[in-house]
Computed example of a mutant assay.
Amino acid sequence: MTRPMGPTPTKGRVRGSLHHLWRVGFMYFAWYTTRAGVWVKNHVHVLTWFGSDGREVAVRLWTIAWLTFVWVLLWGTISWANILGGIAVAVVILTLLPLPRVPVEGRIHPGTVLLLVLLLIRDFFVSSAEVAWLAIRPGRPPLSAVLRARVAIKSDLVLTLAVDYINLVPGTMVVEIDHRRRLLYVHLIDVSSQKKVRDFHAQMARVERLFVRAFERDSEWHPSPYHGIDDEFHRPLPTPPAGGDHR
């Protein structure tokens, strides 16, 4: 009677050793993967990195998208490799080279923003024609001055956009900003009449009204967690007591 042929003892020991080694390796892999996951959970706060609310997250995602777009433009080829590489580079830049948090407050109203753009285009051409006429007209140069205007804009980001709007219009240039009192000191190229001064203040009131309507209506605006983060840089110096030593 012939006995069936089975695996040799040597092959059985090798197979058992490999199976045991695979189980031990899998256990080590699962252990260290779990430890890495716990470390990432405790030290890498993804939601905090993106922002504290939806507006902060939108700004961070927009920044990543813009940096990715620039990265793809630099390579000159649209491909998944370049897009994923751009996202990775953008995340590394925002992590290793973080910029100060910009308070994002209120909501964007595209209709009013479009109206702002159209008014900016109109003011640009009208003011360019006026400045060109002042340059070629006969007579003495126009009388220039620095005028002060207060704007009821609460957000520093929106205030920056308003200042950029004013600076883009020929004939006006913001030379100083009083951050705490929301005062703008604007150089006006022509203040030869009271009408020019009234027109300037009417323009500033219109810009203030449109920016408030476009970005920070009272019913929708609420302070960001980073609102006023730079106020300590704008606090006035303490006044010394009267009669004290001022040396």
Results as ranks from 00 to 15, higher is better:
T2D: 02
G16V: 06
G16Q: 13
H20V: 12
L21E: 12
W22A: 12
G25M: 08
M27Q: 03
Y32L: 09
T34F: 15
V40C: 10
G51D: 05
V57C: 04
A58I: 01
R60A: 04
W66P: 04
L67F: 10
V72W: 10
L73H: 05
W75K: 11
T77M: 14
L84G: 05
L84F: 15
G85I: 04
G85D: 09
G86E: 00
V89M: 11
V92W: 14
V92H: 10
L97A: 11
R101Q: 10
R101G: 02
G106P: 05
H109R: 11
L114F: 10
L116H: 01
L116W: 04
L119E: 11
L119W: 11
L120S: 07
D123R: 11
V126P: 14
E130N: 03
P138E: 11
S144N: 08
L159W: 11
L159F: 10
V163F: 13
M173I: 15
V174Y: 03
D178T: 06
R181D: 06
R182I: 00
R182Y: 07
H187K: 05
V191K: 03
K195A: 14
R198G: 07
D199C: 05
D199H: 09
D199K: 03
F200S: 06
Q203E: 05
M204Y: 05
R206A: 13
E208T: 14
R209Q: 04
R217D: 08
D218T: 07
P223A: 00
H227S: 12
D231C: 02
D231R: 08
E232Q: 14
D245Q: 06
